[in-house]
Design a protein around this nucleic acid. Sequence first.
DNA 1: ATTACTGCAAAGCATTTGCAAATGC
DNA 2: GCATTTGCAAATGCTTTGCAGTAAT
Lengths: 159, 159
Amino acid sequence: MSFDEQELPEEVRQSVEEAWPLFVDFLKKKDARVTQARKIVLTQVFSRHDHFCADDLAAELSSGQNHVSRGTVYRTLALMEESGLVRVIRDTDVHAHYEHTYNHPHHEHMICDKCGGFIEFSDGKLVELIEKACENKNFKERNHRVVIFGTCENCIKSD
Amino acid sequence: MSFDEQELPEEVRQSVEEAWPLFVDFLKKKDARVTQARKIVLTQVFSRHDHFCADDLAAELSSGQNHVSRGTVYRTLALMEESGLVRVIRDTDVHAHYEHTYNHPHHEHMICDKCGGFIEFSDGKLVELIEKACENKNFKERNHRVVIFGTCENCIKSD
DNA sequence: ATTACTGCAAAGCATTTGCAAATGC
DNA sequence: GCATTTGCAAATGCTTTGCAGTAAT
């Protein structure tokens, strides 16, 4: 465990400092090991503010001193999802997208058909209605997801 | 165009009889051709009441007299989606699911983590909130989708 | 010391595509 | 007759996996 965090922007460093112990707890409860590769992946995840895909992350970590292989990136992201630190988004026909959830309160997405951009929004009433629907069906919610497909403001203008 | 519809259950035959002209209109507007393969795929889609995946449909049509190849099934489902007759559901990590939307009013899904089953529900207020959210962001909605992940009533009981 | 994790490259799986033959217009 | 569509099989692209070596406990 000797991974250099010196060069991270302050904001990222802080998120990592807070999120890493949570991931460590999760790993220990699972009897899984706390490894350097897992810390590097977590750090890279928190170095990105927007949505990302596994493969881009893997590409970023495929060279340089903090090298982590593609397989390990996929395996670690699965663990991070299980731990609740990242959220997977499978809506488009391309590949899964991820976003970190630590310090990033629950929200939903609009996805633009033209530019592919994600717009985030949140709505407490929406969440209430979803909870009520679950009650009605005796369904025990673990997670939910709302996506709206369409055209974003910018793309409407530039038509 | 000589595809035998005699043996279809009454209910299916009627859906096909109503939906097929809609698809024909769509194809003509697009300057695409009205082919036998496309009618066979549409018929097979309406012969299923539940969710299905492209590959199962392709398997069903890979033998027998109404043979349609896998490639054509995928291509036709894409057209049917574009026409609005079917809806694609990409939520799980497996493959896309489809459902037909004709005579099947808009609804949302709960997906059970344990048995993989889909539960349908709908809620007018939910739709209103979504429309309102779009107004706020000047987003032009084409479609939306709500999914709830968790455990269904049956799977909770049988724990 | 033991057991889990990693890297690598190969396999897997759903989906897409190129091309020659078939079909609709 | 001409252009689109089809079937087939091969290719693609994301993701997972087997295995031998490496690191964590």
